[in-house]
Nucleic acid binder design. Sequence first.
DNA 1: CTACGTTACTTAACCGGATAAGCGAGTAGC
DNA 2: GCTACTCGCTTATCCGGTTAAGTAACGTAG
Lengths: 337, 337
Amino acid sequence: MKRPTIADIARHAGVSKVAVSYALNGRPGVSASTRARILAIAGEIGWRPNSAARALNDNRAGALGLVLRRPARTLGVEPFFMELISGIEDELSARSHALLLQVARDHDEEIELYRRWWGEGRIDGAILVDLSADDPRVPVVEALHLPAVVIGHPSASGSLTAVWSDDRAAIRETVHHLAALGHRRLGRVAGLPLLVHTRQRDRAFAETCAALGLDEPVVVHTDYTGEEGARATRRLLTTPRRPTAIVYDNDIMAVAGLSVAQEIPLDVPGELSLVAWDDSPLCRVVRPPLTALSRDIPAYGMQAARTLLALVSGEHATHVEAPAARLTSRGSTARPA
Amino acid sequence: MKRPTIADIARHAGVSKVAVSYALNGRPGVSASTRARILAIAGEIGWRPNSAARALNDNRAGALGLVLRRPARTLGVEPFFMELISGIEDELSARSHALLLQVARDHDEEIELYRRWWGEGRIDGAILVDLSADDPRVPVVEALHLPAVVIGHPSASGSLTAVWSDDRAAIRETVHHLAALGHRRLGRVAGLPLLVHTRQRDRAFAETCAALGLDEPVVVHTDYTGEEGARATRRLLTTPRRPTAIVYDNDIMAVAGLSVAQEIPLDVPGELSLVAWDDSPLCRVVRPPLTALSRDIPAYGMQAARTLLALVSGEHATHVEAPAARLTSRGSTARPA
DNA sequence: CTACGTTACTTAACCGGATAAGCGAGTAGC
DNA sequence: GCTACTCGCTTATCCGGTTAAGTAACGTAG
């Protein structure tokens, strides 16, 4: 009934626990015949190494930690996190590591989680997402000597290893694309202004517009929800010189913006072009389908997990730059009227 | 540098390890003054109980397992899973348990995960989602004596405890609502036909239509993706006697259906009414906003976690019925033309 | 024939806690 | 004044594995 241990195997095989341990771990110290016998018995009674016992020995947890900090309602809607998780998972399961996941309300709660998990030996490392400027998590994680990888720009990751993609390049590509179509007045519905990537996108957006001689763009910040996306769109479209194209920081806000436009009504893409950041099935099901900035998010997660595992096993890891998002042109962008 | 243990505390306090253990666990055997001294030292040097050592002792992992089996692309889009996870999390973190999460390709891989996790003592119990008819996971989990809670109807959960909500009641409410508006020809874009809840919804849909004297409804099954939702909608709308209302099994397909209708063009809700299952922000951002079947998914997850924890601690748990989804009427349903 | 190595194991100890049992000292009851 | 009991702590063991340090039996070289 209870789970078999190496002591059970030892008893069956008529040898000591240690002989069994040697045999099962493929190290010298037992004869080939004894080894075969032990392996056979282990297979027969369905033995599995107890992870707690292993962890206790070599002081490894065999798990990595991930804390998500956005409220449940936005978390669910954005495919980003789920795709990221499935990528991380993929890499971890291949190396038989587990992922400890938790949703936290704020930075303090998140930091307390790292303290606890690390202190209790539950995790070997952590992946930090949604990096903000002067992120309070960075110094804490550094002080804890908790191996960690930051998903975000190296400029704000302190001494922690960063896995990042060049959002500025993606923004440049987008603005160039819109400018080439003939747009001169652009708007941007951005995410949380505290996040590093929001700031970088904001700046790149403004700079590229300036470089191309376009009007100074109008940027409205939101909390990533559809509601605020709709509100921001209405604001942009009621300004005296309304933009002819709007770039959104996620897909749900872009869809909300599309609805707002159609309600006014404004023809998309005839009178208004729309671009979403982070492509998802959602962008393809609405009419017109949304031009979007696509990247391979699961691969991004895999890269982060791989880098962190290297760090955990003592290797020295350098920042990793993942491919920038690329513009996938669909029906929501066109030459302005 | 290395993490402090109770032996360190014992040395500082000049007592034995056992005295420290008693003091830290609030059990008798040490004087109040010694206890206070030990607690002070523990706090000072930042001691945390090593989870592996604890687990090894009382044969508990302090973690529950959850395996998701849908492909990453659909997983990300449906808010359901993320909301469920955040609910489970909420309950678990309150009782300082962890959640082990993994994405599997098929039932076999999922079953192998339960075998491994349980065999290695990594989890104390598991939550099974997406119950199918004759689900192969049920007998395996039963044979393993792995405490488990099934999210799905008790009729297919075998001896496992089920946490479920009455989908048939929700379907009945929906069909009654549409019939009251004057609809007589209904369509349904359903999910995977193998899943138990799909079958129950199918049957309830047909039965309610029959009971109300409506036409026999047309049902098309899909894999939950927007693409198939769009295709199914086109099929339904090109049948000779096309339905005047369509009920979808998730939100993304409903949005895809809305786009298809608007492209034809068919006025929603004037010429076609739409209902989505599982409300999400997505339903509110499109125009017209979608009438949807809402339920408190995080609460559902919390209930599952709570029930499983009770099971794990040896209590006898009975099936739990969560509130059925309720229809939230929005702009996508109206009297037919 | 002794000295030295291997081979194939064993015993002992450890990881960090929990638990059962033991053991002096104080003290209360009769 | 003796037993009996409680208090406050200790020593010994255990959980399930890994690792270091023996130790017989045997082969081989000098």
